[in-house]
Simulated assay, not measured.
Amino acid sequence: MSDEPVPARPIIDLKSFTPARVALGRSGASLPTRPLLDFTLAHARARDAVHAAFDAPRLVAEVRALGLAATEVRSRAADRGDYLRRPDLGRQLDAASAATLEGIAAAPCQLAIVIGDGLSAAAVHAHAARLLQSLLPRLAEEEAVAIGHVVVASGARVALGDEIGAIIGARMIVMLIGERPGLSAPDSLGAYLTFAPKPGLTDAQRNCVSNIHKAGLSYDEAALKIAWLVREGLARQATGVALKDESADRAPRRIGTAVPE
Rank of each mutant, 00 (worst) to 15 (best):
V174A: 09
G81C: 08
G178P: 01
L84K: 04
D117A: 04
A78V: 13
E102R: 15
Y83Q: 03
Q205W: 04
A23Q: 11
D38P: 02
L36Y: 10
P260C: 08
A185L: 03
E246I: 03
Q237V: 06
A204N: 10
M1N: 14
T239R: 05
A129H: 12
E143V: 01
I147C: 04
L217H: 04
R254D: 12
A185Q: 01
L68D: 01
S2K: 02
T33E: 14
D82K: 08
G155E: 02
L14M: 15
T100V: 13
A106H: 14
I173K: 00
L84T: 11
V73S: 03
R64Y: 05
L217Y: 04
D94K: 07
Y83M: 02
A70T: 02
A123L: 12
D88I: 05
P199Y: 11
M175T: 04
E143P: 00
G116T: 07
V22Q: 07
D220C: 01
A65C: 05
L135N: 00
A23E: 14
Q110K: 10
S184G: 12
E142F: 12
S218M: 13
A121M: 04
L135F: 11
A53L: 09
A191H: 03
L24H: 03
A235F: 07
D13Y: 14
G25D: 13
K198E: 15
A112G: 02
V22E: 06
R130N: 14
A251N: 10
L217M: 15
A61H: 09
C208N: 11
M172G: 01
H213A: 09
P10S: 15
E163H: 00
L119W: 00
L132S: 05
P7Q: 10
V145T: 11
E261N: 09
G178C: 12
P252M: 02
V152M: 12
F54D: 00
A77F: 08
D3I: 08
L14Q: 13
G240P: 01
E4L: 11
A106P: 02
A56C: 06
H43M: 08
S247C: 08
D48S: 11
T257I: 11
S30K: 09
A170P: 00
D3Y: 12
L183Q: 12
R26N: 05
A61W: 04
E221L: 08
A156R: 00
L160M: 09
I113V: 14
P137V: 12
F17P: 01
D220P: 02
Q237I: 04
S134C: 15
P19G: 05
